[in-house]
């Protein structure tokens, strides 16, 4: 239950400006995901909110009160780190209790809170172990448990799944989504470079690029109405196809973008035609790479197994209304 507002926030390391005037409102209880390529400043944004980095200029408020000069432990935040950052020499219980003990909480209260959090995460049988005796997934649960024990207003995640293997990543993602539903009054901010994590977890996504907020919106807003070529290309997998120059002219813009699932094979009224140069069969879908003379081959997604021999020429056309048009500056033409 904290509404977080960033007003013209900047951050410089020496002469290097990493965050260039961020304006953002995160609603109370919202699950906000910061996403962007590496070096875009998403982690720095999170660290500014956590207080681990100081803000160079601008204002950061939680529920209207200014947080710029408040130390991290007094902000009512909890953070889950990429490397878990468990205290290696402390047992799980002490790891989770450390913050409360430092805040001079009573022993009973500490015990109750830790055990409650452990039950919630199903790690209550691990409380006597040391971090090195746990698996990666268990460590991440302990790290989340330690954050829950802090009873935060704001829950911060810094790429918490990157160190887990693929299967565990999906499981933990679901776990985090569940956590968000259970703690629906806690604002959560989650940093990732993985747009699938962003799409599946977020209430709203904030796309960052070079220290600037590119677009903020719900996953479907970003998917359907990207505010720039950058966002269009970053959100969605496989990447949106972009065609420019001669291909875009008939549509009256500099560049057109079309997602792979919005192209269909057409025999008669084909917009484009080309040779199939590669195909990837994923079982449920098939991605066909069609060379139509543009910079990169067009990726076309077809449901089910689609046996098209390589080298065959096929015709393609966009689904109506699914074409994205962009001007020379990369902004959408609507």
């Amino acid at each position: 239950m904290a509404e977080i507002v960033l007003k013209n926030v900047t951050k410089s390391f020496g002469s290097l400006e990493v965050i260039k005037g961020a304006n953002l409102r995160i609603e109370s209880g919202e699950f906000m995901v910061f996403v962007g390529p590496s070096g875009c400043g998403k982690s720095t944004m999170l660290r500014l909110i956590s207080g681990l980095e100081s803000i160079t200029s601008g204002e950061l408020t939680f529920d209207g009160s200014l947080m710029n000069n408040v130390v991290p432990s007094k902000r009512g935040i909890a953070m889950v780190f990429q490397s878990y950052a468990l205290y290696p020499h402390m047992k799980v219980f002490d790891n989770m209790a450390f913050g409360m003990k430092l805040a001079k909480a009573g022993a009973d209260e500490v015990k109750n809170r830790v055990e409650e959090a452990a039950r919630l995460l199903q790690i209550d049988h691990l409380l006597d172990r040391l971090p090195k005796q746990l698996s990666g997934g268990q460590r991440q649960r302990v790290a989340i448990g330690r954050a829950i024990v802090r009873d935060p207003r704001v829950f911060l995640f810094d790429e918490p799944l990157s160190n887990l293997d693929a299967a565990l990543r999906v499981a933990t993602r679901i776990e985090i989504a569940k956590l968000h539903r259970n703690m629906d009054d806690v604002t959560m901010i989650y940093v990732t470079h993985d747009q699938v994590e962003a799409m599946t977890l977020a209430d709203r996504i904030c796309v960052l690029r070079d220290g600037i907020v590119e677009q903020v919106g719900t996953p479907s807003e970003l998917y359907d109405f990207p505010n720039s070529i950058f966002v269009a290309g970053f959100i969605g997998s496989p990447k949106m196809n972009f065609l420019s120059a001669g291909f875009a002219e008939p549509f009256g813009c500099a560049t057109i973008g079309i997602r792979s699932e919005h192209i269909e094979i057409a025999n008669s009224d084909a917009e484009w035609s080309g040779e199939v140069v590669h195909a990837e069969d994923l079982g449920s879908d098939t991605y066909m790479f069609v060379e139509i003379g543009s910079d990169e081959p067009l990726v076309v997604r077809c449901a089910g197994k689609h046996r098209v021999p390589w080298g065959e020429r096929i015709g393609l056309k966009p689904l109506s209304g699914q074409l994205h048009r962009f001007d020379g500056a990369g902004r959408p033409v609507r």
Binding site: S50, L52, S83, A85, G99
Partner: peptide
């Protein structure tokens, strides 16, 4: 020593001495 452990401690409210 890993920086994240120290940051976790900072968030837990540890002073430099702690």
């Amino acid at each position: 020593l890993p920086i994240e452990i120290e940051e976790a401690a900072i968030i837990d409210g540890a002073t430099p001495w702690v």
